[in-house]
Amino acid sequence: MTEETHIKWLERMEQDSRTKQQAFMNDIARRLKRPRTTEAPTHPYRGAPDYWQEFQWSSVERIDQFTANFQSAGGHVFRMADMDEAKAFIVNKANEMLARYILRQNVSELASLRLEEELADTRVSVWNTNLQEAWKARAAEADIGIVIADYAVAYTGSITVLSSADKGRSVSLLPTALIAIIPLERLKTRLGEVLIDFDEAGQSGLPAGIHFISGPSRSADIENDLTIGVHGPGIVFALLVG
């Protein structure tokens, strides 16, 4: 099987799919006993109830609520005045946990921490900086993954990370522990305040992966006994900075 034939096959499948798509839609309209709907219908109940859309917490409440929710899900939250404090925390943790491998996103905020200078015995890798590297394997062996959150939500205690060439999905998923830095201005009250941005970005404006993370990986599948760190990171630190 050559690459050429696979592409040909995909093209044939797409032709089939487009034909079937019309049949599916016509069948739906027939069963609903009306002509095809081709214009966007009015959607009077879009999104959360009205009272909720106006709901807002103050900055202090957002911090308190995020902290309470994230902790009750088994995560750890620390408040930092600035990035220097965040750096000191990370260096301390890495030493305390005897971290040998750290993997971080390739973003300027994290680069300016200069972790590799402080952590002489730890190998600090930067996501996707060398095209020859097996990055998934690097992520899988990492003791700690470090990310900057794109958003955070106080009401659900969630961190949001968006994927890009510099921000691999694996960085927040494969390492044993995860440290997420949350600049305070990115901490919202409600989930809807984050989601609306994706509606506004539209189809062409979204990254491949949008991930909400609300604590350490968990399961209650064995006798309802809570287990932490089944597949994803078992230890998650959220650092609220600002």
Binding site: A73, Y155, G157, A208, I210, F212, S214
Partner: peptide, 13 residues
């Protein structure tokens, strides 16, 4: 739960 630990939106490869 208020939200599951992971909620992921995947848009294409």
């Amino acid at each position: 739960q208020k939200l599951t630990v992971y909620m992921s939106g995947i848009s294409g490869p």
